[in-house]
Every structure is written in structure tokens, then in C-alpha cells.
Design a protein around this nucleic acid. Structure first.
Lengths: 225, 225, 225, 225
DNA sequence: TCTTAACCGAGACGGTACGTCAAGTCTTCCT
DNA sequence: AGGAAGACTTGACGTACCGTCTCGGTTAAGA
């Protein structure tokens, strides 16, 4: 772990595992860290590895992706991968983030109901119409026995997503649609939890009716008035 | 594979050959194949295997459990395990079901709110105070790349659990607490989904406040009245 | 091993329990041995087993013959085989003896040279035109790590063969063709050894020229006169 | 299998990759593939494996030698063995050749009789006073159901041995002891065949009398003069 | 310009576990 | 008591990846 955290330019959502995971991200900035003796890392290799990993993940899932085959497809030595990512999970996470992030814009429709519906529909579409759905489930599954991936998922996927969606709720409070006493965290858990439940267990499809029902139960409850 | 899936007790879709062994024990039920030719399977072996699997799962998790070591600990040949369970996931599922099922009684407190609170508290306690919590998460994770386990989980764990909890909602309709138009499935997804979300991702603890908030949002919504 | 070697009539060196079964068949002859409590052994089973073993041996060789498959083909339980033969090698030996013995008549042409030529030609033909050649090699190979088979081979195949061929030499002595001081054993070793050498190692074919050369070297030597 | 059979020293057809390691060591000879890409094979491993195999063979025979245990004793992964030798037989062959080859010098006593006696005595001593005797028998046995070993035995053991001994006969022709018309191959078959016959079947011991008788029959024949 | 440090592709290394096979024995019910 | 069936323990098989470690060879920055 001499000089992890190679690239990840400013603004972009840190692509390499080490970037965000390590926290800082400030690296190629000035002379911080080792200045750069020796041959620099090949960014061709970066790209080839992520591309190979991505295509393997999309076609056969995380479990079927082996470092061995990623290396072979990328035309790269295994050590070149291990120099960049400490584990298969974090590599897969990067490959996932590349194609999933920023697919989740926070809507602003003027009403909380509209925002919630739009946000949930966006999420549902992303996971049902692309390989990212299975991949997301696979990563959460894998994270159950890989503490590093577990932590990285929380820091680099879950929390940013929740943060972006929390503003929907803040706007609703500002508009007086919901009281300030509402526990945002619980609301987000219900919101994403129900959908993720269906994604992971597959017992029922995520129809439009499902999306609307989730939103309406959350807004108005089920108790008879 | 002459006589896998021997019993499959009434109603429940026992999936693995051991389903009967673990679940009901009713075996020579139907006329599939000769009823009892050859040496019968040793129930000592059944017990030893499940016990060994259970203790390994409890101490080190699913990923650390290998068929090889289960066999060694149970004093049993690997083939004896493969004769009963087609995969490590289904073996773990049986070991899990043995100690988790029937820990989830359906409460009847007289009010829907009371029932929901009691049920969720029971679930939360089960997953936070025993190794079953990590095991459950681990199994759901494993199921993401094991279709057989995925199906078995749905049939033998999820659906029975939901069925038992649906009656809470039916009673509430009968009492007039909620309208009959409520979509039970969505309610159950929100109910278990939120909690499972926290279990799998571990971003926040499952406090009593969490339990109450989940129930109250579901009952009364968050919209300002 | 309750009642091995049941029959073994006078004279014949039947070694394994099945020796009798394969050789004579006369078993429950008189009251010799256990008189016959319980159900008698099925001679259908005897025949089915030897037939199954024989066909497997002929088609794929000794190594590819497993007791498991012999049992399956013969429609017989494995224990039924083990009750009769203590090991796969001895079963194969019986299957071999059935079809090889008595194929080796001792010729009587009136001269030693004629006898030797005829005998060797007979042997060569037997091992080059039937599956028995490979089977013989296979059995000798197998006997190298199966002491019971090794002993049985000597007693039931090798020694009878040598005994029958020794008479050729005795007749030659009587006729005055060779001196009485000739060591018959060495002669037999040269005679069969050279041929078996080619059979086992396959470095050269067993042509008619080979047969004649072997005989002539043995008779007249190679030294210039 | 990129660079199996690397060297194959002059003339002799070294069969397994380790042939070179065991035999000559000349390796990077021809241009088959890139000459030395990747980490080179460890010759420590070569030695450790052959030593472990040799000691197992000497103590318990070929049948009791398992790749598993060779690997364990050599402190080596199983794959490291399979990378070098395709089968247990060829590994054993190399271990055998190491300790048997060059134990068979060709004598030059001045007379054919002297040469034959010395050569046969050498061979008999080698197989009766060292574990190589049983090992040789075992390998020939094993070769009966392993075509690769069968071929390798012929190429790496049998043919070189015969070639070395053929010169004895050539010298005898030159000296006028035997006519040039003698079929050397048949002579060699008789010579080694008789001895190997006794080795494999063990029906009689290989005494000095046996050695002399074999040689004298071959030289002078048994026919009365 | 010459070191020298870190990279690169390749592939061997010691391990662990896999799922399969057959061995020879044991246990059930049936004949 | 024998027979067919088939489960039992044992032990080895050959394969797949793991993450680490050499190889011979670039590719820069620093001396």
C-alpha cells in the first residue's frame, strides 16, 4: 500500500477503489505523497481492467468474475490489478459505480409526492432495465462477507445516494408539506428498503403500482381516517 | 438423483432433499420410486451434519463454512453430505431454518399498532442478539448468486413469514382499523424491507425508536394533516 | 469369509471361492462343507456376474472395470459379488480363465521343434487375435500390486500352463532329442518369457519369424559352430 | 501446456516436461514459444518432488504413492506437480530412471559369454537387491493401463537399454563368435524376457544357476549334438 | 548520461476447496 | 440365510482461483 489512490481527478466521482475509500482523494494535487519516482502507473491498464471487469460483471455476475480472467481479458498481469485494488469486491464496486452513479438525479417536481414518485421510478428503472440491477444485488450480497466492500458501499454508494435524496425531504419541510419532526432516516429506509427488498428477494415485481403504493403509504399511512 | 426431494410436508414447499429431514420428517409419503429399498439414510448423519454446519455458521459465518470441514466435524464423508444437499447454500439454509423458524410467532395484541410493534421488535431482537442476524444477511447475500438457494429462501423462509404476518393485517381489516383496499404486499415489503435494509447495510442501528417510527409512518404517514 | 472355497474338486487347483463356480459348477455336491442352511447361492447370479465382468473386460480393459458397474450390469448387489470374490482382480481372473483356458492344447507333432513351434504359435495367436491378449497383460500388470491375484495367477494359470508344456520336453528327452540334463524351467522361462516380453512392452510385433527364431535359438543356440 | 516437453536432450525422447530436469537439463533450446516468459520453474521444486516420489516409491510401492502425498511431503502444491508431469506414472518413471539408469553399464570382457553373463548378473542384482526391482515390475504393470507411460517406458528405458546391449552382440559378430545373420532383437527378447518373466511372476528365484543356464541355452541351444 | 525505482506482462508458487468416483462394508426389506 | 438396493466412510482424483513471488524488460525522474 505504498501509494494507492492514483487518479481520480477533481469533481469526478473517484473511480478507483482506493480513491474514495481512503477518504481524501487529494493526491495528484501538489507534491503531497511520493512525488513520483519510477515508472508511473499506466492509465491504459486502469481502463482495460475496468472495461474487462465491467463486461464480465454484466455478462455473468460478480461470482463468475475472477481476477484471473479479468487479467487475461485486460491483457494485464494479476499483480497489476492487485496493485490498484485490494480485492475483487472493490474492483467490482468501481466498475459498478462508473456505470451507475449520476444515473440517479434528484428530481424537483414542486411537490414531495412528485419527487418521491420520480425518484423511485428512476431507481426502479435503473435496476430493472440494465444489468446494474443484478449487479447491485450481487454487490450487496458480496458485501455481506467482505467488510471492506461493506464499508466502501456505505461510503461511496449508499450515503451519497441518501444525502442527495434527503434534500427532497428538506424541501418538503420548507414547503410545509411534512413536519420538521419527521425522521428522515427512517423515511429513507422505508423508501429504499421496500424496493431493495423486492430486488434482492425477487418475490414480486416492481411495477408502477408498487411505486405508487409505497409512496402513498409513506405519505398518508394505512390507518383508516 | 433417484429420490431427492422425498417428503415435502403438507403445504410448504420443502426444497432440498433434507427438507424433510430437517423440517417434517415425513418421508415415505408418496409413491415416488420404491418406498424403502436399500439402506435408509442415517438420521444420525443428518443430525451430525446439521449440528456441525450450525456451529460453523454461528462461529465464522457462511463464507467460512466449507463442505470439507462440515464433513470432518460431523465425522462423515463428503459424499454423505452431497447425497442430501446439492449445495452449501441449501445446507446452510436448513441449518438456519432449524434455529430461526418458529422464533417468529405472530402476536395478537388486539390492535394493529400493537401487533406491528411486537412483530418488528421480535424480528429485530432475533437478528441483533443471536448469530442468526449475520447468518440471515449472509444467506440473502449468498442467494444473490445461487438460484436454488434464492428460490428455497423464498419458498421456505420468506413466504411462510409473510403468510403468518398477513393475518395481522387481515385481523386489522376485520376490526375496521384499515380499509380492505390496502395492498398487503406493499405493506409487508415496507415493514420487512426497512429493517432488512438496515441489517444488510448496517448504516444505522435498529433501535426501539426505529421500530416505532417505522410502524407509525406506515400507519399514519408523514404528510402534514 | 464364512464359506469360501466351496467346491474345488480333486485335482483342480481352484483357489477362489468362485473357482468352483467358474470351473466345475459342481457345488452343492454332497454334504461336504456347510450342508446348505438358508437360501442357497443363486447360480444365475454367478453367471450374470461373470458375463458382465467378461464383457466389460473385453471392451474396456481391467482398469475400466469397476465392481460397481459389474454389479449394475449383472443386476446384482455389490455384496453378492464380494460374497463370491474377495477382490476385483480375482473376479477378473475367473472371467479370463473361463475364456482362455483350454485354448492352449499341447501339440504332439513328433519332434520337439514342431511341438515348440506349434505351441508358441498357438499362444501368439491367442494373445494377438482376441481381447485376451490385452487382458492377460492387464492381469499381470494388476498382479504387481495385488498379492492375492499374483498368487492365484501363478497357481491357476502359470503353473498349469507350464506343467502342460513340460511334457513336450519330457517327450523330447525320451526321444533323445535333448539331453536329460536340460533345465526345463529355464527353457520354459525363455520360451514364454520372450513372448510375454513383447506382449507387455509392445516394442516389436510377434511375427511368425519371431516364433521361429525363438525356437531355433533355443534349440541350436547362436554360437558359431 | 504452453511449454511442456521443453528440452528433450539429444536422441532420447524425453517425454514429460521434467524429462529435461531429470535427464539432461538442456532446456531453452529451440524457439518453441517465448523463451523464458513468466517466472521460471523452480528447480528446488523439481528436486523436492522427485525426492519425495522416490522415497514413497521405495518404501511402499507405486500403488501406495499418491500425488496428494508426494505434494505434501515435498512441501509443494499439487498443481506444481501437475504442471510438470501429466500423470503419476510418468512421475514415477522419472523417479525410477534417476536411480536406475546408468546402473546398467555394458561389460566388455572379451568374449560374448562373459559379456552376457556379466550383463545379466548386473541386471539381476539391480532388481533383487534394491527396491528398484519391485518398482520396475510395478511400472511395467502400471504401464499396462496407461498408454503414455507405456510409450515413455519404451522410449526412455527399454530402447536405451537394448541399444546399449546390442553393441555386445555387434562385438561378438566382429570377433566371429556368432554369425551376422543372428536376429539381435530376438536374442535381446530372450535375454531380458526370461529374467523379466521371473521378476514379474515370481515363480522361481533368479539364481546364479539361472543366469548361466539362460546364457548357455542362448549360446549353444538345447538340442543334442 | 547514467542510475534507480516503480511499473509492466507473464506465469510459477504454496494453498484451499471443490465436486466426483470407486473402494469395500453395512443395513434395510424381501424371497 | 441369501439377495438386491443403496447408504456408509475413506481417500484420492484433477481443476480452479486465491494472493504472492519472481522473471526479463520498460519508462520515467533524479543525480
Amino acid at each position: 500500500m505504498s501509494r494507492d489512490i492514483p487518479g481520480a481527478g477533481p469533481g469526478a466521482g473517484a473511480v478507483s477503489g482506493a480513491g474514495a475509500a481512503a477518504g481524501s482523494g487529494a493526491e495528484a494535487a501538489a507534491g503531497s505523497g511520493p512525488p513520483g519516482r519510477g515508472r508511473p502507473r499506466s492509465s491504459d491498464a486502469d481502463r482495460a481492467i475496468l472495461a474487462a471487469a465491467g463486461s464480465l460483471l454484466a455478462s455473468h455476475g460478480l461470482e463468475a468474475m475472477s481476477i484471473e480472467e479479468v487479467a487475461a481479458r485486460a491483457g494485464v498481469g494479476k499483480a497489476t490489478i492487485y496493485r490498484r485494488w485490494p480485492s475483487k469486491g472493490l474492483l467490482a464496486l468501481d466498475a459498478f459505480v462508473v456505470s451507475f452513479s449520476a444515473e440517479q438525479p434528484v428530481p424537483d417536481t414542486g411537490s414531495l409526492r412528485g419527487d418521491l414518485l420520480a425518484a423511485l421510478r428512476t431507481w426502479v428503472r435503473a435496476v430493472t432495465t440494465t444489468p446494474n440491477g443484478r449487479l447491485l444485488a450481487s454487490l450487496i450480497g458480496f458485501a455481506q462477507h467482505d467488510p471492506e466492500l461493506h464499508a466502501a458501499w456505505r461510503d461511496r454508494v449508499l450515503e451519497p445516494l441518501r444525502a442527495r435524496h434527503r434534500v427532497m425531504l428538506e424541501r418538503a419541510v420548507a414547503r410545509g408539506e411534512i413536519p420538521a419532526s419527521v425522521d428522515f432516516e427512517v423515511v429513507l429506509d422505508l423508501f429504499f428498503g421496500a424496493a431493495q427488498h423486492r430486488l434482492l428477494l425477487g418475490h414480486l415485481p416492481m411495477t408502477d403500482h408498487f411505486v405508487e403504493s409505497v409512496v402513498d403509504v409513506m405519505l398518508y399511512g394505512i390507518a383508516a381516517r
